[in-house]
Amino acid sequence: MAKSIEDYTHRIGRTGRAGKTGKAVSFVTKEDSALFYDLKQVLLASSVSTCPPELMNHPEAQHKPGTVVTKKRREEMIFA
């Protein structure tokens, strides 16, 4: 996997050049998890690519790295 989404986009852009079709396959490991969110966004925005369910549902792909995620407090009903 490329070290940045910009590098990934550049590499993938080489697939199917000059009006030809092609397929690109990227192999990722847990060391690439910082890119999962951006990779998911790029794939979802593409008109020709699909985001595999493994990436779509991966916990590391749900939020941009470095953002603070707080769990929403569940409302409780109190019966008196």
Rank of each mutant, 00 (worst) to 15 (best):
G16S: 08
K23T: 14
K40G: 02
K40R: 10
A61N: 05
M77K: 11
T50C: 14
M56I: 09
T9P: 04
E6R: 09
M77C: 15
C51L: 04
V42C: 05
P65D: 08
E75H: 03
T29G: 07
F79I: 00
T67V: 14
Q41N: 09
G16K: 03
A34G: 14
I5F: 13
A24L: 00
S26N: 12
K3C: 13
F79W: 12
P52N: 04
K20W: 04
D7Y: 13
T29E: 11
K71E: 10
E54F: 08
P59G: 02
F27E: 15
E6N: 12
G19P: 00
K23L: 14
P65N: 07
D7E: 15
F79K: 05
V28K: 02
K64T: 09
C51Y: 05
G66W: 08
S46W: 06
P53C: 11
G19K: 01
Y37K: 01
I5M: 13
K64I: 09
L43I: 03
P65L: 08
L43K: 07
S47L: 08
A61Q: 02
V25F: 12
A2T: 08
M1N: 05
T15S: 14
H10A: 15
C51W: 00
R74N: 03
E6S: 12
S26E: 14
A45K: 05
S4I: 04
Q62V: 06
N57D: 14
L43Y: 02
R74Y: 01
V28Q: 07
T67M: 14
S47E: 13
R74C: 02
N57T: 12
P52G: 04
L44S: 07
R17H: 05
T21P: 01
K30T: 10
L39H: 00
T15C: 15
K72G: 01
V42S: 04
A18F: 09
T9Q: 11
V48M: 12
I12E: 14
S33P: 02
S46H: 07
K40C: 05
T9C: 11
V28L: 05
C51I: 01
K30V: 08
K30M: 13
A2W: 00
F36Y: 10
V48R: 11
E31G: 11
D32V: 06
T15P: 09
M1A: 05
V42M: 05
L39A: 00
D38L: 11
F27N: 15
T21H: 10
E54I: 08
K40D: 07
L39W: 00
G22Y: 02
G22W: 00
R73L: 02
I78E: 07
M1F: 02
K72H: 03
K72Q: 06
K23W: 14
